[in-house]
């Protein structure tokens, strides 16, 4: 269902393709493929390989309020639709980490609380579409010059629990590690994208595009508004693991990669 919605949005975005008359492009070339990367401060929480904070240390509590540096790799294609406009689709992926506490059922006593501090290695794959508006007042002429992009992306996250610590507050451990490992860790959501970039021609076929972007996770904003007050895990009881995970994840993603510095190299095909 989500895919079909995404498809509908994509169609809407590309509708402008059919309307154009005689579009100059850059010296006649309108279609470009881009390879690039985004570097961004990853706020809060640990990650594997220092992606987004300090390394996860099993013996200690995870450190909050730290900033690391993460990166994403991206491939995209842009097509110039007008003198001051172009549309693009992109695919990018990155990795990050998340610690969360999973509450686990106890078979001894209802008063015994078992839980696991877990580390999830998150793989994010993103596909999205943007509309680029070139700024004519600064001499831009699509696809070169300064432009702002508006668009959306669909992020698919898959988590893998790579480390965990089982904790029994009463000192009796009855948790089966398989309960932790079988926990469902798939998630997807939408982001709004706002981007500002400069496309500078290096040669007649190669452009370099430095810039920055802001991503607002649509789902996360809604969920935070809903659950924002209920951040204490204890209040939630035992059976709300998925909700815990979701909120932690949304919060993590919201802070992580909110602002990105991007650098793309574009090759103009035709």
């Amino acid at each position: 269902m989500k895919i079909s919605k995404f498809g509908a949005l994509l169609i809407l975005l590309f509708l402008s393709l059919g309307i154009n008359a005689q579009v100059p492009g850059f010296l006649g070339k309108k279609l470009s493929i881009n390879l690039g990367g985004a570097f961004y401060p990853a706020f809060e929480g640990p990650s594997k390989g220092n992606k987004g904070g300090v390394d996860f240390v099993l013996d200690e509590n995870p450190q909050r309020n730290t900033i690391g540096l993460n990166y994403a790799l991206e491939i995209s294609a842009d097509y110039t639709t007008g003198r001051y406009g172009s549309v693009g689709i992109f695919y990018n992926q990155y990795q990050t980490g998340l610690t969360t506490r999973l509450h686990l059922p106890s078979d001894v006593s209802i008063f015994v609380v078992n839980h696991a501090e877990t580390f999830h290695l998150i793989n994010a794959k993103t596909i999205g579409a943007v509309f680029n508006r070139f700024r004519s007042k600064q001499g831009a002429l699509a696809p070169i010059g300064r432009f702002t992009s508006y668009g959306f992306e669909r992020v698919s996250l898959t988590g893998e629990i790579t480390d965990f610590i089982l904790i029994n507050q009463k000192g009796i451990s009855t948790v089966n590690p398989a309960d932790v490992q079988n926990f469902e860790q798939e998630h997807s959501f939408f982001n709004f994208i706002f981007r500002y970039m400069i496309s500078i021609p290096l040669t007649e076929k190669i452009l370099i595009k430095p810039g920055g972007s802001l991503r607002l996770p649509f789902n996360a904003l809604i969920q935070l508004a809903e659950y924002g007050e209920k951040t204490s895990h204890e209040d939630w009881g035992f059976n709300n693991n998925q909700a815990h995970f979701d909120v932690d994840l949304e919060r993590r993603i919201l802070l992580h990669g909110l602002v990105r510095f991007e650098l793309n190299l574009a090759y103009l095909l035709f």
Binding site: L27, I144, G145, P201
Partner: peptide, 12 residues
């Protein structure tokens, strides 16, 4: 390059 692009636009 920008000058060129604008000229191309004019000729186009």
């Amino acid at each position: 390059p920008f000058m060129k692009a604008h000229l191309y636009d004019v000729f186009n």
